[in-house]
Design a binder for these strands. Structure first.
Lengths: 112, 112
DNA sequence: TGAAAACTTTGCTATATGGCGAAGTATCAT
DNA sequence: ATGATACTTCGCCATATAGCAAAGTTTTCA
């Protein structure tokens, strides 16, 4: 098979495909500058599990770490999110079309 | 571990995390009503591989199939895409902030 | 009827993911 | 120097993903 998540956008969408990781991003949005322990505290998983999720988020460029003493502060990087949004954006015209119209289109095509 | 892609939004982001699947969606956007063979034609993978990708897209609700004789026509379903875009949307304010301002924030937090 | 076409399913393989406990590395406080 | 704190890495496991060839199904055409 091809490489698993080769491009940046692959890594971004993959990173977003997990509720724990999305929760981390949302938490960092509302409470910037949390440490890794603080992020871990409400989560139902152990530290090594969180470390793996943070590695996925780092690989996607969605977070960056800053070490101060023994505390690692995590911050959100918005760029990949905006790139993912851009990709979705060029479908916007499509999802604004009513479902009725879509159904009509499908039937039309079915006859061809 | 928790279930792999339990929620609709998990499945949507996961489906988007692969270039073949994104290519299928883009192709369906510009050429609605393609059959599975037509979708397969430009792709560097065999039919069983495409079938798996289509299954992932179906599970995410991103496509639907319509069978006419032996030909299966695939059409794009926009709803999950718009929901994914909505999730990203609530980070928009964040990525509109300049990177300079972000850097400042990080330093500020570093001192606390 | 018989064969081709279009799709589907069935194994099979290799690699990735997501979790854990345990052990390791810094850093800070006593 | 000792020990605690904060994070990191290591092995290990179970399951998922992504690919293929080959065999199976349904529909169409000769």
């Amino acid at each position: 098979m091809a490489k698993y998540h080769e491009t940046p956008i692959d890594r971004t969408f993959f990173a977003l495909a997990d509720p724990t990781r999305r929760q981390v991003l949302e938490r960092l949005k509302s409470e910037p500058g949390l440490s890794i322990s603080e992020l871990a505290q409400p989560l139902p998983i152990k530290m090594p599990g969180l470390m793996k999720h943070l590695a996925v988020l780092s690989d996607a460029g969605l977070i960056s770490r800053t070490k101060a003493g023994r505390v690692v502060t995590v911050s959100l990087a918005a760029r990949p999110l905006s790139e993912a949004a851009d990709w979705l954006h060029h479908f916007e015209a499509f999802w604004n079309v009513s479902l009725d119209r879509l159904a009509a289109l499908v039937e039309e095509e079915g006859e061809a």
